[in-house]
Simulated scan of single mutants.
Amino acid sequence: MIKKTLYFGNPAYLSLRSSQLVLNLPDANGMDDKSGRNTIPIEDIGVVVLDHRQITITHALIEKLVSNNCAIITCDQSHMPQGLLMPLSGNSVQGERFAHQLSSSVPLRKQLWQQTVKAKITNQAILLKDVRSNVNTDNMHHWASCVASGDSENHEARAAAYYWGNIFDIDNFRRGREENPPNNLLNYGYAILRAIVARSLVASGLLPTVGIHHHNRYNAYCLADDIMEPYRPFVDKVVLKIIDSGLDYSELSKEVKWHLLSIPQTDVLINGKRSPLMVAVSQTTASLYSCFEGSSRRISYPQFEN
């Protein structure tokens, strides 16, 4: 079942009743708390985005959401995702799985990063060719094929420079968190993607903090940052659609955010089958654990349909 992504951008009171999220809006006098029209089963929720300073959420609801492995995202005053609340325990044999992850060898982690970078560059190349048919992508496919263990020659950076220089039909576009739009859309979309990946890692019994490549003492989601890399082009595709639609993307309007919140339901191709991105991520993290455990040597990553 595809889990719902819920976005709250107005004053609201969120509480729990009979394993249901109960929504009450101060300005919506017509909502009857007993009618059931304003309730959502907890088991149907995958991501909750809280984007207003006048949202009140009860501890009972937080506890229930977290225990059902729901990612709760809080936004700052500029409406950008800022915080992520995740469960400490998401798998019944978590200790055993932690042990496999923490004891994984350096050569294995380098091989897994090699697979990750190859998948990312390949997806970037396919998307770039699809939206900019006049741009040559043979070099990107060549770089993908040349990625060595651990990406020792940093083909990821070489491909990124070429990709970002051509993907948008915008003069002097530069990719950066503080750069001009549509970087605001990319930042928001990647934050949603990061939460989805972190949620699935926890469900697979893995530590999101311990990466296969990213290492930062201040980053609690290094592994999520690793595993989300091949999924980034799917976010880029959503951003391109927003730009092409003619919407004003200089600000994160509700309509723009509505499109970005569709990312979990975006179709991808994984293991030869079409699947919503959120479901595909769970297959990716499950395959990652199989690599740590020793029953597999390959991570299942998505790709674009031809």
Rank of each mutant, 00 (worst) to 15 (best):
Q77A: 11
H59A: 10
V93T: 14
Q114S: 08
T116R: 05
I55G: 06
K118C: 07
S92W: 10
N91P: 01
H141A: 11
Q77Y: 08
N134W: 05
D27G: 06
S35Y: 09
V66T: 03
T74I: 08
L21H: 14
C146V: 11
I45E: 05
G150F: 12
E43L: 07
V48S: 00
S105Q: 06
A144Q: 11
R37M: 10
E43N: 06
T58S: 14
M86L: 15
M31Q: 10
I62S: 01
N136M: 07
D27P: 08
W113T: 03
S78I: 13
I45P: 05
Q94A: 04
L85P: 04
A148P: 00
E153A: 14
K110V: 05
R97G: 08
N38F: 01
I57G: 03
K34V: 12
T116A: 11
L50E: 00
N69H: 09
W113I: 06
H100G: 05
A28T: 05
L50F: 00
L88W: 13
P81R: 07
S35E: 10
T137V: 14
A99L: 15
N69Q: 07
T39V: 10
I62N: 03
Q77R: 12
S103L: 15
A125R: 08
C70Y: 03
S133M: 03
S104L: 12
I73E: 06
Q124R: 10
L23Y: 10
Q101Y: 11
L61D: 03
T116W: 02
E156N: 13
D27K: 13
H52W: 08
I42K: 02
T74V: 09
D76G: 08
D151R: 08
N134C: 06
V93D: 12
L50D: 00
G90H: 03
S18N: 11
S18K: 15
E96F: 12
T137Q: 09
L25M: 07
E63Q: 08
A28R: 14
S78F: 05
L25S: 12
I40V: 15
L108K: 09
W143V: 04
I42V: 15
E43V: 13
T56P: 00
N123T: 03
S78C: 04
P87G: 07
I126V: 09
G30Y: 12
I121W: 02
G95Y: 15
Q101G: 09
L25I: 14
M140R: 08
Q54E: 10
Q115C: 11
L23M: 15
V131I: 04
G46T: 04
D33A: 10
L14K: 07
P41R: 07
L50Q: 03
Q94W: 08
N154C: 15
L112S: 06
R109D: 01
N38I: 03
G83A: 15
